[in-house]
Amino acid sequence: MRRLLSAVAVTSFLLTGFPVITWAQSLPGLTLFSGVKSENQLPFRLDFGGQTNSWDRYILRIPEKKMKLAVAQFAITYPNYYKGSFDTKKVEVKVRGKKVALSEVKWDKEGRVLEIFPEEPVPAGNKVELVLSNVQNPAFGGTFYFNCQVLSPGDVPLLRYLGTWIISVN
């Protein structure tokens, strides 16, 4: 009986002693001194942990409270020191969990903007996810501010700022 209890104790110690692997990184969490007001920080998830020089999937979320107008175009801008790459064929827009048909996705590398055009405008008041699959994370880590801007249908052709995803690559 004593050996059995010792074996159980050692096994439970070994199992709880190993670090837990984090499969996804997500925010918003506690961000200090970011320069972005908390109400402008947008939630996101990196499905494969945001490791440098590796493939990842970015799920960039826009809460329904931010979607005050219908959206005909999403524009994601990022800083010039972000040296990752995007696969425009692997971009999806999901509204309340359902895929939306896209007419075009453009990546302007020099302008540092990823433009996403749904076939039909995304209705106001919906939770939206912009899913970027096959993203090649940059070789060097850092914190990158991805800004979300939108264009409403029939609106003056000026993009409106919705918020910022503060993404860390380790």
Rank of each mutant, 00 (worst) to 15 (best):
W55M: 10
T16R: 12
V105M: 00
F18T: 13
P121I: 05
P138R: 00
S133V: 03
V95G: 07
P123C: 13
F146D: 01
V36T: 11
K89G: 09
W107V: 12
G141D: 04
A70M: 03
Y161Q: 12
N170A: 15
G50W: 00
L14N: 11
K127P: 01
D155P: 02
S6L: 15
V105C: 01
N147L: 13
G35L: 06
K37C: 07
F48H: 09
Q73A: 14
T164C: 09
A101Y: 08
F74L: 09
L151I: 09
K83M: 12
A70Q: 05
G163R: 04
T11I: 13
G49Y: 04
K65Y: 12
A70C: 06
F74A: 01
P28H: 02
G141Q: 07
G142L: 05
N53R: 05
G141S: 09
S85Q: 08
L42C: 07
L46N: 01
N170I: 14
N170R: 14
F74V: 04
Y58E: 09
T11K: 06
F140H: 14
E104W: 00
S152C: 04
I167D: 01
F146H: 09
P121N: 06
Q25C: 08
N80P: 09
L60Y: 02
G163F: 00
P28S: 10
Q25T: 10
L32C: 09
Q73W: 04
G49N: 03
P138F: 04
G163P: 01
L102I: 07
C148R: 03
L60T: 03
G163T: 01
E110L: 12
K83Q: 13
I76F: 04
P153K: 07
E104S: 14
S26P: 06
S152A: 07
Q73F: 02
L27C: 13
Y78S: 05
A24L: 08
L162T: 05
F117S: 08
D56W: 03
P153F: 00
G84A: 10
R45C: 07
F146L: 11
K98F: 15
K65G: 06
A139H: 01
L114N: 08
R2I: 10
S168M: 07
F48T: 03
T88I: 15
T22E: 14
N126F: 07
W55P: 00
N80H: 11
V71C: 08
T22V: 14
V100G: 00
K109Y: 11
L4K: 12
N137Q: 07
S103Q: 11
G125Q: 06
